[in-house]
Simulated scan of single mutants.
Amino acid sequence: MDPTPPNLYQRYRPWRRSFEIGFWVAQYLVGALANSITVNMDVRRGHLDFSAWQPVVWETSSAVTALALVPAVVWFTRRFPLHLDDWRRLLPLHLLGSLAWSVLHVVGMVAIRKLAYASVGDSYDFGSWWRESGYEYLKDVRSYAGMVLTIEGYRLLLRRLQGEAMLLSLPDEGPPVEPVERPERFLVRKLGREFLVAATDIEWLQAAGNYVNLRVRGHDYPLRSTIAGIEARLDPERFVRIHRSYIVNLAQVASIEPLDSGDARVHLRDATVLPCSRRYRANLRSR
C-alpha cells in the first residue's frame, strides 16, 4: 500500500521556521526602505534642512529595534494568547505589554540613532522625552496591536491546517454518551471537518504554552488546556506523567533507558524518544 501523501501542513513544516523569520525580516526591512524613500521625498518637497542619510537612519533604527523585539512579543502572546472567549480578561495585560514594547522600542532606536550620528561627527537630539515618548506610544500601540493580531491569526491558520482537538462537552439535552470528566474520545476539527479520536489512540502528549499537543499516529492536535488539567482527566491506568511537559501512553512504551543524572529516556514503539525526569522515573518504572 502506498503511503499517505503529505498534506499541506506536513509539506509546510520543514519551511515553517524559515518562512516565519523571513516574514518579519521582510516586513520591517522592506518597510524601512519604503519609508526612507517617502520621507526623503517629503524632505525635498518641503525644502527641509536634512541630509539624505538622516531619514534612512530614522527608519532603519526603528525597524531594526522592532525586529529585535519580535521574539519577545511571540513569547508574550504564547504565554497570554488572545482568544475570542477571554480577550477582555487579557486585554489589560496586553496594554501593559504594548507600553513595555514602546519603551524598549524608543530606547533602542534612539540609542542606534545617537551612535549613527556620532559616527559622522554629529549629534542626535530626541527632544523632550515625555512629549516624544507619548507621541511614539500612539504609533507603537498600533504597531503592537498589528503584530499581535498577525501572530494570533497565523497561529489560528496553522491550527486549522494542523487540526485542533477539543474535549467533548455536556450535550444540550439528555445525558452524555460517555463520561465527560474522563473522556474516552476527543473531538478533532481539521479543515472544516470533525472526527473523533479515541483516547487510547493518543501516543503521548506535550505541553506547548497554553496548549497541549496530542500526538496521534504521527500528527499533533493542539488541545487548549494545561498539562496538569488534561492529566487529571486521562485514565491513570493508561497514561502516566513522565516529565513536567510530557505524558505518555503506557501501551506505547518499549523501553526505559536510565541516565547517570538520574533522569531517563523513554523509547516508544515507533522509535520516538521522550525525556523522563527523575521526579517521575520511579512512578513510571512501578507502572
Rank of each mutant, 00 (worst) to 15 (best):
V248R: 06
N249E: 05
L205M: 14
S255D: 15
N210W: 00
G192Y: 11
D263P: 03
E237A: 14
N283F: 10
R269M: 11
S261H: 00
S255Q: 13
E237P: 00
A198R: 15
I256E: 12
P258N: 02
G262A: 08
F239G: 06
R185E: 11
G218H: 07
F239C: 07
R279E: 00
L234G: 04
I202V: 15
V253L: 08
D220P: 00
G209Q: 07
I242A: 08
A282N: 10
Y211H: 00
V216K: 07
P222K: 04
E231A: 08
G192L: 11
P275F: 08
N210F: 01
R287I: 11
R281C: 10
F195G: 09
L191N: 14
N213L: 13
E237C: 04
K190V: 11
D260M: 11
R244Y: 06
G229W: 11
R189K: 15
R233G: 00
L223C: 08
S245Y: 09
D220A: 10
S255C: 07
P236S: 06
D270L: 10
D201I: 11
R279V: 06
E203W: 00
L250Q: 13
V253K: 04
K190P: 09
A251C: 07
I227L: 15
L250N: 02
R189Q: 14
A199V: 05
V248K: 03
R189T: 13
D201Q: 15
D201L: 07
A198Y: 04
L187I: 04
I227E: 02
A271Y: 02
A282H: 13
H243S: 00
V212A: 01
I256R: 07
R238Q: 14
P258F: 02
N213T: 01
A207N: 04
Y211N: 00
L187T: 05
I227K: 03
F239H: 04
L259P: 01
P258T: 05
L250G: 02
R285F: 12
H267N: 14
R233I: 08
G209R: 03
Q252N: 12
D220L: 09
A264T: 09
A228N: 13
T272H: 15
R215L: 12
A208R: 13
A254M: 12
L268C: 10
R278D: 03
D235A: 12
L268W: 02
G192F: 09
H267L: 15
L284Y: 12
H267T: 13
V188T: 03
R269Q: 13
K190C: 13
D235Q: 05
A251E: 14
V240L: 12
R217M: 04
I242M: 11
I227P: 01
L274E: 01
A264C: 12
A207K: 04
